[in-house]
């Protein structure tokens, strides 16, 4: 085996960087879509909205029981066909790999976040609701100002852990021929033959980002534990 040569990494840094930027933007977008949609899905179940609650339960159950990579395939290959049917001319309507990735990750994460938030909603102390009732707060104000902020605080370590998993899962976009951090490294490695260096550096990048996020989880846990002591 040849000696390691990390100069290759320095040379290919711009390409790796663009891959990392893609991974991070996909994570951020999926987080944003997932949290907003996930909160809505959780509330629909929490309030037992007729019919809709059943639909949401089915959706969450399906998404959570199939691998993300399959959901990506579905969206990439099936949605254009369905859109083709709907548009009437029968020809598949391509929706593009990047669009597929953002939408799929957002919808996929929404199912996971909604479960976290749903459990969090059930954990809110009954006394909090009674205090809101006694103060004549509307249901909207109760959830907007009292219940959801507490749920998000309590669930923040779990939500962040899920987001770390999401960040690592973004590497699956290679099946859509998109170039994320891992994809960039893998393409470079095949071009220049420096597999060990490339994969090592990428592993370190994932490690650094994920462990920094894990540190945040620990800080959040601690802060929350302090806030509820007594």
């Amino acid at each position: 085996m040849n000696t390691l040569d990390f100069s290759i990494v320095a040379q290919s840094w711009p390409y790796l960087w663009s891959g990392l930027v893609f991974s991070l933007s996909l994570t951020a977008a999926a987080f944003a879509i997932g949290m907003v949609l996930g909160t809505c899905l959780a509330l629909v179940q929490h309030f037992e909205v007729p019919v809709l609650a059943q639909v949401v339960r089915g959706y969450v159950a399906v998404i959570r029981s199939i691998p993300l990579i399959l959901v990506l395939f579905w969206f990439f290959f099936l949605v254009p066909i369905v859109l083709g049917y709907l548009s009437g001319n029968g020809r598949p309507v391509p929706i593009g790999a990047t669009f597929t990735a953002f939408i799929t990750f957002g919808l996929f994460e929404a199912a996971y976040y909604s479960e976290i938030i749903r459990v969090g909603l059930r954990a809110v102390n009954k006394g909090q609701f009674e205090a809101c009732q006694a103060l004549a707060l509307s249901t909207y104000d109760t959830y907007r100002h009292i219940v959801l902020p507490q749920v998000l605080r309590v669930a923040s370590p779990i939500i962040l852990s899920q987001t770390i998993i999401l960040f690592q899962d973004t590497s699956l976009v290679y099946v859509l021929s998109l170039t994320d951090l891992l994809g960039a490294a893998s393409k470079l490695a095949q071009l220049n033959g420096r597999l060990v260096e490339m994969y090592l550096v990428v592993a370190l990048a994932y490690l650094a980002i994920s462990s920094a996020a894990s540190q945040c989880v620990a800080i959040l846990r601690k802060r929350y534990a302090l806030a509820t002591s007594r």
């Binding site: 006394g127 205090a131 902020p149």
Partner: peptide
């Protein structure tokens, strides 16, 4: 409820 204030055994303050 606007005219009736209530104080609970377990305080029920909003912790956040």
């Amino acid at each position: 409820r606007c005219e009736v204030g209530m104080v609970f055994q377990s305080f029920n303050l909003f912790p956040h």
